[in-house]
Design a protein around this nucleic acid. Structure first.
Lengths: 138, 138
DNA sequence: TTGTTAATGCAACAGTGTTGCATGTGTTTT
DNA sequence: AAAACACATGCAACACTGTTGCATTAACAA
């Protein structure tokens, strides 16, 4: 979706910086972390990057993907998300070699046995391994 | 397992601090973060805590569990782990209310479709929801 | 175009994790 | 049991990540 329309749809002001951030998300298939945004959008204030990411996450434009290492990356949401709820029970792949992270879509959810009294509202799966590029490089 | 035996089994020196850390892991069913260790083992140097956790993780005594928020916790491994490889394809539960994290065991792995050229060696599942104690408190 | 509200930039701070080095302690060897 | 060695610990300082407060600037609505 156009950056302008996407922002307006979520009741956010359309600013140059936000459009650049969205463009960066669009041109990358892999998940992005705040460092990458800082570096690529040259005169980018760290604070603004963090606030932008938080705003986008709260609005349902992007979703948070934790690494196995504890690092956090973000990727664009599909259309189902808004400020009320994220719907991201899809799996993510994390490359142990280059630390790249991507979304894996199109598969059902595994049945989980929870202890009694527990309730679940979101299931995230992280698949760790080696991506195609790193496998070729070996 | 006895702390002494566990440490010796992994070729680590048996020190007071390490035994206290292992005792803390043993007396808690939930995953533990470095802050908790610092606070509970009173005169505990942050650096020593981090190095101890890293040593234990490298040796296969504990495994790392990332929160959806990006925070990192640790829990004891089952017996199959050593310095060469961790085997932790089991799921973890994270309570959105109290931030408690536990291991869920005893279920099979979901089949995952990876893009061609990708290889997987570990699958981690994080179930987010509300634990029994927090559900009761509502 | 003007006024209101939100976004940005800057400075300072807090939390988390790391590195280097000196000192202390566990383990092995004699 | 003592000495020597290697590793573990504690301290100081640092780096990185993320946050808060406040002044300034830009977007949007009237």
């Amino acid at each position: 979706m156009e950056a302008d329309k996407l922002l307006r749809k979520h009741n956010l002001r359309v600013t140059g910086f936000r459009k650049e951030v969205l463009a960066l998300f669009n041109q990358r298939s892999a998940a992005v972390d705040s460092r990458t945004i800082e570096k690529h959008l040259q005169p980018a204030d760290r604070v603004t990057v963090y606030r932008t990411l938080r705003t986008f996450e709260d609005s349902g434009i992007i979703h948070r993907i934790p690494d196995p290492t504890g690092a956090v990356k973000f990727a664009l949401c599909n259309d189902g998300c808004n400020d009320l709820a994220h719907h991201h029970s899809h799996a993510h792949f994390h490359c142990n070699t280059c630390a790249m992270t991507i979304c894996l879509d199109g598969h059902g959810q595994m049945p989980i046995d929870l202890p009694s009294g527990y309730t679940a509202n979101d299931i995230q799966t992280i698949v760790c391994g080696v991506c195609a590029a790193c496998n070729r490089a070996t």
